[in-house]
């Protein structure tokens, strides 16, 4: 996880639900590189073709509501979205995105200080999002240590992999004593 994340901004409205992020008809697609072609087809049609790695999504309230489909954050990760910042998130989306290692930040009032194409600067530990063009900024509450740990590991897969590996190591017999 980078301490400072900077990127070009795409803006989204409120209540962008998972049906609008990845529509039901694409749910049988597993390959994230295929999925990313259809991301935001309903909410932000030009995004899939024009987004670049490192771009930052800034949304209003209740981003990612609706289903538990992980397709939504997966498609964003495949595009290389640098961070998702919103006034508020729906619960499962928030969990899924963090589990996939996507910096996901809840900052009340953030949508109002950005326009499409601005540059956002996020201080992950400092707890601040700044619009580099206007200088406006919003503070956000510290990310809980547990979640920072997940982001630092690069997501849940890596975290569990480390845990299982250390369990295995602990379970295997100690090396014979050196004579």
């Amino acid at each position: 996880m980078q301490e400072i994340i900077e990127g070009r901004v795409w803006t989204l409205g409120r209540d962008v639900d998972t049906d609008q992020i990845i529509s039901g008809k694409y749910l049988t697609i597993i390959d994230p590189n295929e999925l990313k072609k259809h991301v935001f087809e309903i909410a932000l049609p030009e995004f899939a073709s024009e987004a670049r790695a490192g771009d930052i999504l800034v949304a209003d309230e209740n981003f990612g509501s609706g289903s538990s489909r992980e397709h939504a954050p997966q498609a964003m990760r495949a595009i290389g979205v640098g961070a998702v910042v919103a006034d508020s998130f729906a619960r499962i989306f928030y969990r899924n995105a963090i589990n996939l290692g996507i910096p996901t930040i809840e900052a009340r009032g953030v949508r109002a200080i950005f326009e499409k194409g601005d540059t956002a600067r996020i201080e992950m530990r400092g707890g601040r999002v700044t619009n580099v063009r206007t200088g406006a900024s919003i503070a956000f509450p510290p990310i809980p240590a547990h979640l920072l740990g997940l982001l630092e590991a690069g997501g849940l897969v890596e975290k569990v992999r480390q845990e299982l590996a250390s369990r295995k190591a602990a379970a295997s017999p100690p090396p014979p004593p050196v004579p």
Binding site: S68, E70, P73, I92, N99, L100, G155, L156, V160, E163
Partner: peptide, 29 residues
Amino acid sequence: TDSHTNMLGAMGALATGIGPTEMAAVLAL
């Protein structure tokens, strides 16, 4: 792995939806 898992809360359980990566961790741990 479905958001309407909440329905089973009617049993007096805490039932909730999670994503598939999280489910992988649940299956493992």
